[in-house]
Simulated scan of single mutants.
Amino acid sequence: MTWTSAFGRACGWLLQKIVNGLALSRISPNTLTFIGLIINIVAAFFFGYARRANADRMFLYAGLVIIGAGLFDMVDGRVARQTNQVSVFGAFFDSVIDRYSDVALFFGLLVFYARGNRFFYVFLAAFVMTASLMVSYTRARAEALIGQCKVGFMERPERIVLIILGALFNHWGTMAPALWVLAVLSTITVIHRIRFTYLETERRKLQPTT
């Protein structure tokens, strides 16, 4: 067994213990989802209240808080399955809350750059916020038409990882490159999904009807 597989097993064991404890508490999975949003809003406040003098420390706090929010994002579905509380509304609610969490984080960054008069990065943060929403929107609209559209790389987990890395290592100026990567790859993902949906709808038009 390699050390990476051992680490993965240990993390999986710990995560399952957390899920077991939450399942025993009978807490609603939707409540866990909402708690994750509140924690992300706290991270957004750390971003927004940062100044040049303390930005590294505040971004570090924000990154750690986002990791904490990610824990709730990982366990809500598991708790729902373990306690037989899986529902269509729960999946819908989780998706909606994820969008609010994304917007909160990018809005916090937007406020930080605005307070520092870094207007180009205000625009960049706003663009990334819009692009991240469009990644989710194009999938939702496509799947309403063609059933499945999972193409593209820049899904929410990848976005969150990049934000966390940018926040934790902001001392070395990593947040700006992280935003650039998010902007480019999110846009490519949106274009990929538009193209995929177009080709799929055209293919279905050519299929003979029975």
Results as ranks from 00 to 15, higher is better:
residue 5 S to P: 02
residue 7 F to I: 10
residue 8 G to D: 14
residue 8 G to I: 01
residue 10 A to S: 07
residue 10 A to C: 03
residue 15 L to M: 15
residue 15 L to F: 10
residue 16 Q to M: 11
residue 17 K to T: 03
residue 17 K to H: 04
residue 18 I to S: 11
residue 19 V to I: 14
residue 19 V to T: 02
residue 23 A to L: 08
residue 23 A to T: 12
residue 25 S to R: 15
residue 27 I to A: 00
residue 31 T to M: 06
residue 33 T to D: 08
residue 33 T to I: 10
residue 34 F to A: 09
residue 35 I to P: 10
residue 36 G to T: 05
residue 36 G to K: 01
residue 36 G to L: 11
residue 42 V to C: 13
residue 43 A to M: 12
residue 44 A to V: 12
residue 44 A to M: 15
residue 47 F to R: 11
residue 47 F to Q: 06
residue 51 R to P: 06
residue 54 N to F: 13
residue 57 R to D: 06
residue 61 Y to P: 06
residue 61 Y to M: 13
residue 64 L to N: 07
residue 65 V to G: 02
residue 66 I to K: 00
residue 66 I to R: 01
residue 69 A to I: 02
residue 72 F to V: 02
residue 73 D to S: 11
residue 77 G to C: 09
residue 80 A to C: 00
residue 81 R to Y: 03
residue 82 Q to N: 07
residue 85 Q to M: 14
residue 87 S to Y: 02
residue 92 F to P: 14
residue 92 F to Y: 05
residue 96 V to C: 07
residue 98 D to G: 08
residue 101 S to L: 01
residue 105 L to S: 11
residue 114 A to L: 07
residue 115 R to F: 08
residue 117 N to Q: 04
residue 121 Y to D: 12
residue 125 A to M: 00
residue 126 A to H: 03
residue 127 F to G: 06
residue 128 V to R: 01
residue 128 V to K: 05
residue 132 S to M: 10
residue 132 S to G: 11
residue 135 V to R: 02
residue 138 T to G: 00
residue 140 A to F: 11
residue 142 A to P: 04
residue 144 A to Y: 05
residue 145 L to A: 12
residue 148 Q to G: 03
residue 148 Q to Y: 05
residue 150 K to W: 05
residue 153 F to V: 09
residue 156 R to H: 12
residue 157 P to V: 04
residue 159 R to D: 09
residue 161 V to R: 08
residue 164 I to A: 01
residue 168 L to K: 05
residue 169 F to T: 00
residue 171 H to M: 04
residue 171 H to D: 11
residue 173 G to V: 03
residue 174 T to C: 09
residue 179 L to K: 06
residue 179 L to R: 05
residue 180 W to G: 14
residue 182 L to H: 00
residue 185 L to T: 10
residue 189 T to H: 09
residue 191 I to L: 15
residue 193 R to K: 05
residue 195 R to L: 09
residue 195 R to S: 08
residue 196 F to C: 00
residue 197 T to G: 10
residue 201 T to S: 05
residue 202 E to L: 07
residue 205 K to H: 04
residue 206 L to G: 14
residue 207 Q to H: 07
residue 209 T to P: 10
residue 210 T to K: 02
